[in-house]
Design a protein around this nucleic acid. Structure first.
Lengths: 340, 340
DNA sequence: GTGAAAGCGCTAACAC
DNA sequence: GTGTTAGCGCTTTCAC
């Protein structure tokens, strides 16, 4: 049976009494030690230690409005992309002694709204959000109430809200140009639903690069809509294998999809890259570690986070900024042979 | 220039004034709506909407002591294992309308202590901690102050502190027995530092299984100490390849290490599993998706989290519990041919 | 350098 | 059913 003594938490006045000083003095020791004479300070510090006093953050925040907490809402915390972004945020915040509360919306606008309210109740100084929907009305409302808002991995639709994003159009274009450079003419794109901004943008980039090369996107490209995981990649490749005019190159909207695609191609007896070239997106940890290392579009995940936190920590009166990072194509074996 | 109006947050008394009622009534609408007549309730709700009022959580908590926040400190939030554990925790907490604050200690006892204090200041009801060190003195101190403590992925060294863990000794033994069953006689174990409890335990399991089979662990086993990532696996295999008596089976302390091992074996022209059988640990998402699907020891990550949250949410006077889950061996191609 | 006291926004106990 | 009010623990003037 644990001795979980449920007595009242020891408060600043307990410490004051124990040290024979006033609560104001204890508060000074805690917040402006230089204002207190060394003697009393020692005494108060001893009392704090003896009673193992821990400040009540709620009271502190209620009184002082001193807010050192920031919230972040990402689409899916188990996605390595967002994990790395989060770490970037945390690293930057820690440097300024801020704390981060993270939540995952799981692409559900209701969950996003729920966490948003929760963070607001907890008096966060600001929130960094990967929006689930294109509308950011609700975020503007939050901002009206004096809470900082930074859009994560999403370009801002309005001038007044800061944002940090990666150029997905260019990412799609880079991947496509690379495949065209390798001599491929029939391309497939395993993509997610166009309602997901990243997917729509990457498609736009693909079409752009095709047009650039003088190809008609409607002819040179087969787009297959799949779920954003390995099963999606498997289904996508199955659909392509059955088609009469098999593409020689497949671009996948993320690395998990590419993983499923790779597996399925191999099982079908096709060689990557000799029969089919493959390019993924995100450059997750294991992309380089696969039996056939995967060419992938790398995004500056960590920097995305640190930069977002940067924008968050600037004063509320600083003008909004819209940062757009450029992705980088990491070429590996999965795309570097000439097509058969 | 954002209109970040820094005026005072609208409070419950603003709402009361706007609706022409008292603060008590507004509070009642918020907390016990049934106590309020439908007419006034409507009016108050309208005022809340119009002023877009959001409750001040600090004041609420300060007054009511109503604590619905729980903290979790894991070793490394970017490790898929801990991500899944965290999701399990969150899921369970959400069901009871609790909120989770997550932090990553990065195996640094100082960071652990820092977050522990922070959580305590924020008045969390309890903390779930994967301890960085074997000592849990500091956690006992926290518990003394009325805060619940549950050890995560770590068996409790004391009866009075609840814990949730997975049997790593058995996990190591299962993997080893499987390899022995396949006819292997010369085994290697790519392991981490023994100061990490999981590593020490898994080694114990390996030796146990060898002894069980009548083998002398010191003879039948080569242990190589590596870093807990893919580079570690690569280095480990390199060391083994140079050895005179190459093992025919390699057990890796986690799947990332196994990934590096797999890659390096292939590059050396060795077939997995025909030349060398391979077993990993954790059964991460991509284990099944590799060109040679990886046999791995699966841990009930999600359940580990939900169970820990369960223990956390029980009343403070419930007796401590020590839950130990059993891992499960997931057999795939990387270990299922007879040795060459 | 130190103490006294006001009050942050809220909930709950108690009047009416 | 609704209003009034006392604090929760803290920071911060403002006296002394």
């Amino acid at each position: 049976m644990p001795p979980r003594t449920q007595h009242r938490r020891t408060s600043i006045s307990d410490v004051a009494r124990h040290a024979g000083v006033s609560v104001g003095t204890v508060s000074n020791v805690l917040n402006r030690p230089d204002r207190v004479s060394p003697g009393t300070r020692k005494r108060v510090e001893a009392a704090i230690a003896e009673l193992s006093f821990v400040r009540n953050g709620s009271a502190r925040q209620l009184r002082a409005g001193r807010i050192t907490t920031v919230g972040a809402i990402v689409l899916d915390i188990s996605n390595p992309f967002f994990t790395d972004v989060t770490r970037g945020i945390e690293e930057r915040l820690t440097a300024d002694d801020y704390t981060l509360m993270v939540a995952s919306s799981d692409r559900d606008p209701e969950r996003e709204a729920r966490y948003l309210r929760l963070f607001e109740e907890h008096g966060v100084r600001g929130v960094m959000v990967v929006p689930t929907a294109d509308s950011i009305e609700h975020l503007l409302a939050v901002r009206e109430r004096g809470i900082g808002v930074v859009l994560l991995d999403h370009p801002s639709p309005v001038e007044s809200v800061s944002s940090v994003a990666v150029d997905d159009v260019n990412g799609g274009a880079m991947a496509t140009r690379h495949l065209l450079d390798q001599g491929h003419t029939r391309l497939a794109f395993l993509n997610g639903a166009h309602s997901i901004r990243q997917c729509a943008d990457r498609l736009e980039g693909v079409r752009l690069a095709l047009a650039e090369a003088g190809r008609d996107p409607d002819e040179a490209l087969v787009e297959v809509t799949v779920s954003l995981d390995a099963d999606g990649g498997e289904a996508g490749i199955r659909a392509l294998l059955d088609a009469p005019d098999r593409p020689t190159a497949v671009f996948c909207v993320n690395d998990l999809v590419a993983l499923g695609a790779l597996r399925t191609l191999r099982r079908a007896g096709l060689s990557v890259p000799d029969d089919v070239a493959l390019v993924g997106y995100d450059d997750v940890t294991f992309a380089a570690e696969l039996a056939t290392p995967l060419t992938s579009v790398r995004q500056p995940r960590h920097e995305l986070g640190t930069r977002a936190a940067d924008l968050m920590l600037r004063g509320g009166d600083a003008p909004a900024e819209h940062v757009v990072f450029q992705p980088e194509l990491v070429v590996r074996e999965s795309s570097t042979s000439a097509p058969a």
